[in-house]
Computed example of a mutant assay.
Amino acid sequence: MPEWAAAQAAAAAAAGLTLTPPNANELVLDLLATHDAHSLPLRPLLRAGGLFGFSDQTIRVALSRLKRDGRVVTTARGIYALPPGGSLLMREVEGWGAKEARAVAWTGAWIAVADGGLDRTDRPLLRRHERALRLRGFQGFAPGLHLRPDNLAGGTGSVRSDLMALGLAPTALVCRLDQLSADDERRARDLWDLPCLAAGYHALLDLVASGDAALDASDAGQLAAEQAAAQALTLGRVVIRSLIRDPLLPDAMLPAADRRRLVAAVAAYQRRAKHLWTGLLTAWTAG
């Protein structure tokens, strides 16, 4: 194992993460999202699949499945693309870097979601509902009641619309809470493991640093470049997923300096990884 790969594995373990490579569907979607045109011919998709041990047939089956599900379209013979607009979750992934701009000053109020009347026998609805709450950093405060600090731009109305677009159950009530009792205020602030979040930022910064070392090694030749590209895609998925799920807590609860450093480091790393992947995909397209 190259030294940088061992460093990545160690840094990921320290962050409580596993560098799990994408499956065939995820790989295709990631590559189409990475390419500026969000469109690629079959040849580079097959070549990229080989870096992750996928046969040509496996990638072809993945493309057929994604096309059937409406997650990929063909714009010409042998040309695959993301559909116009994409999915809500894909937009979440693509817009992770702008998430920090959503945070505003916190006055101490909370946003609450009350879902005691939710039909929990509707499993697809329940999955979408719970995913929406996770993506916007809500935690369960009491049965049927979830909270987060009211520190997102636009306040309750904007968060309500955002949650509904992400799949929140239409029967859920979204409202603003303030003037909690001292005990309830302490309980609300304790819903998040703040030391764990702070340690996670440092561990992820170490992981990104190890990824930079891998990209430095990509200058050693074609094989090293392909290996580094595969590692970069795997690492980027893990780190960006962590940032997407970050609750974006206010400074009064968790100082945001380390989170902002992490966002900047990941953005710089992603630019380097994208440049590497763009070069490979262009070369593979040319044949």
Results as ranks from 00 to 15, higher is better:
E185R: 15
A230I: 03
G200M: 10
G221N: 12
L235F: 07
D212L: 09
Q227H: 12
D184H: 11
T234W: 08
L233Q: 12
E226D: 08
L215G: 03
A229F: 08
Y201I: 08
R189D: 02
L204T: 00
D184I: 05
E185A: 15
R189V: 03
H202C: 10
V208T: 06
V238G: 02
V208F: 11
A217V: 12
Q227M: 11
R189M: 04
L207E: 07
R189E: 04
L233A: 08
L194I: 15
A217P: 01
L215E: 00
L191Y: 10
A199Q: 12
A199V: 01
L223E: 12
P195W: 00
A225L: 09
T234R: 01
S210T: 05
L207P: 06
A229V: 05
S181T: 15
D212T: 04
A232P: 02
D184W: 10
L207Q: 09
D219F: 11
A199L: 07
A199T: 08
A232R: 03
D190V: 05
S181M: 04
A209L: 03
A228Y: 01
L207W: 09
D219M: 12
L191N: 01
D184R: 13
S181F: 06
R189P: 01
T234K: 05
D206L: 12
L205H: 13
L191P: 03
R187Y: 09
S218D: 11
G200Y: 09
D184S: 14
A214Q: 05
R187Q: 14
A232C: 01
A230W: 02
D219T: 13
T234M: 06
R186N: 09
R189A: 06
L204Q: 12
L180R: 06
D184F: 09
L207T: 05
A188F: 05
A217H: 13
L223T: 14
D219V: 13
G221I: 12
A209Q: 11
D190I: 01
A209H: 07
S218H: 10
A214D: 04
Q231F: 06
A213N: 05
G200D: 14
S181C: 08
H202G: 14
L215M: 01
A220S: 13
T234G: 10
D193L: 09
D183K: 07
V238T: 15
A182Y: 00
A199C: 02
A188E: 03
R189G: 00
L207G: 03
L235E: 09
L197M: 13
D212F: 05
A217N: 06
G211A: 04
R186A: 15
D206P: 06
L191E: 02
D206N: 15
